[in-house]
Nucleic acid binder design. Sequence first.
DNA 1: TGCCGATCGTTTTTT
DNA 2: ACGATCGGCA
Length: 737
Amino acid sequence: MDRLAKLLADLDEDQKQAVLHGEGPLLVVAGAGSGKTRVLTYRIAALLARGLAQPHEVLAVTFTNKAAREMAERVERLVGGGLRGGFVGTFHRFALQLLRNHPAEAGLPPRFAIADEDEQRLLLDRILKRLDIPAGRLSVRAARSRISAAKNALVGPGALASRARGDAERLLAEVYEAYEAELRTAGAVDFDDMLQLAVSLLERHEALRKGLAARFRWLLVDEYQDTNLAQARLVRLLGGKTPNLTAVGDEDQSIYRWRGAEVENILAFEEAYPGARVVTLGRNYRSTEPILRAAAAVIERNSRRRPKRLSSEVGDGVPVAVYLAADEADEARFVADEIARLRASVPAGEIAVLFRVNAQSRPFEGEMVRRAMPYVVVGGTRFWERKEVRDALAYLRLLAAPDDALAFRRAIHVPARGIGQVAMDHLEAAAAALAAALPAAARRLPEALSPRARQALAEFFALLDALRALAGSAPPADVVRELLERSGLAAQYAAGDEDDRSRRANLDQLVAAAAEAGERGLDLMSFLDEVALLTDADMRREGDAVQLSTLHAAKGLEFDAVFLVGMEDGLLPLRREGSSEADEEEERRLAYVGMTRARRRLILTSARVRRINGQLLAGRPSPFLLEVPREVVEDRAAAFGRDPFRAHAPHPFRHVAGPAASLAAAPFGPRTTDHGPRPSPKHPDGWRPGLKVRHATFGSGVILQVQGTGAQTRLVCFFDRAGRKTLIPSLAKLEKV
DNA sequence: TGCCGATCGTTTTTT
DNA sequence: ACGATCGGCA
Ligand SMILES: Nc1ncnc2c1ncn2[C@@H]1O[C@H](COP(=O)(O)OP(=O)(O)OP(=O)(O)O)[C@@H](O)[C@H]1O
């Protein structure tokens, strides 16, 4: 069998259509788990195998770096030789590479820096103070997000100013302009600039654009529903007159509207690319029928979508489970208990707990630790954003690019070396007077400084020079190690407490990352670029650990078992003041994405009360939860070991055709904090609460609660050694004492 | 200049 | 509840 036939054997008829499509624009739209990513990957492989494409002609864009890595590996395995010379990566990585190759044409210094979020905030803070804008008028946060939105929509400060209505918008435009000026003075770009500048680079340099369009003859973009205006423009520019563009996506999974994503890009693809072939895929290879039906019931209520049908190729399966928890602690205990049970048949790495906001991970982490179960948290404070790591990176940036003012401002203060506000003001003034980069001005040790500050500065630069000399000969890891020692960065965390130990561990991890980069032959600048683009999702460990992740970070992934937690009205869907109907639809898509990550088991949980910012808030179940058809839901009372509200709460699970709002309004019953055992009816097998029992592994204990009958019987027991367990008496080796 | 404690507000999601 | 930030003090 030749290579192509072998490839096609892994695909169904619709998928083949897409994979074998020749030249011209192609759109693959299909629901979750229908093999879109597989189609994209196989299409690359097929183009290579058929000799239609050369590896260096392929430009494939994925949503995360990790997805890129996997796609490249997959292609490599499918057709030996792989994609050498081609590009597989994120839009941001592509744009950065482009700008690094052509800094002058882009109007950037040769070794321009990438401003991280901290630095953006710092700049904006300075600007707002300078312009005397009180936080009430415009906060740093608001300014940052609105400038980011403008950039993603390809709106510059000038354009923003000219279209500004009212003082608030004029003020924003002014801040935006000052921000751009400061960034440029610092020789830096921010995250959003990468796309924007890449677009304007190609728009202004036709020869360059033509060259790239001619080289990258085959463009393939995954997750097209979450591309923004700048990204779509970039694709258009690279496509040229005869775009061989493959876009793959699902408007139901567009979850980055808040970041400038335009679902219109995929909904109006055929208008943007007339004559585009459209292939839809209707078979889901990931999830069981109940899971799919549950997810479909939720997403169907959205309006801006192409209706689609998805049939499960996996077939029937275990019903979707629902658990109503007393509070977030109970929810976490329940999930951890269930995970412990699942682990008998499912590897930890195939289990995910998905939540709407990072703050929800805490209780789950606690329960996982208590049970000594392996887990990783994805999202939250990312490794590369930790203070100790960023401090070290600031030094490294100064080694790679001595004029990096942003890095200088950070590094000069850690560890504290007697340079304070006064000294900094002198340095900034000197830099302005000399029209020099801040670090260059500082290196001249301006007279205005105190002797102490001059001494400190001299030592600082001596250290940098020594390290730079070392960087010329030694591998990156050695440089980092030396830096941590000689700068005193490591010594700051010498104490034995938990906090310091974790900071030291992070610094060790930085050394390890540098070592790994060195082995791949990356120089310091490339290492720093890579680090700037990495996210937590990219660092997802391959190891066998339960994944605690935000819904956003779970996009594109799949797990055997998924716990979608915190399904409360207001949390999922998250609602805050000013939330619109469109926001609500995005929340619904988020729920859909979460549910469709599951292969065989989907468990939805909701808490009656939840502590948010220290306050107890009573919630009602998410409307999404109530929309799940009753027939695909397990009778949770029999399925789970405890059900704290059975006695009080109406069963929230009724199949109702009416509007979600009226359902969500159903009262929850009286509040209770009683976690204790509940009286159980007499059980035919003689199990009763209070009965002493002995278990083969857990030892002796007592029954707290009896639920269900026959094969469905569950016993909640408390063991002297092992604590609280829920057991199935027909399976567990349990004897009455 | 740098450290400590009181005060404040808080992120929703991340390339 | 918690962490970041600001103001006062050494
Ligand atoms: N023809 C097929 N035969 C068997 N398995 C398939 C086939 N196509 C796809 N799959 C499997 O189905 C699962 C989902 O595929 P894939 O991730 O490509 O879907 P997707 O449409 O990109 O999903 P999503 O949009 O939800 O991220 C994967 O495990 C994949 O290996």
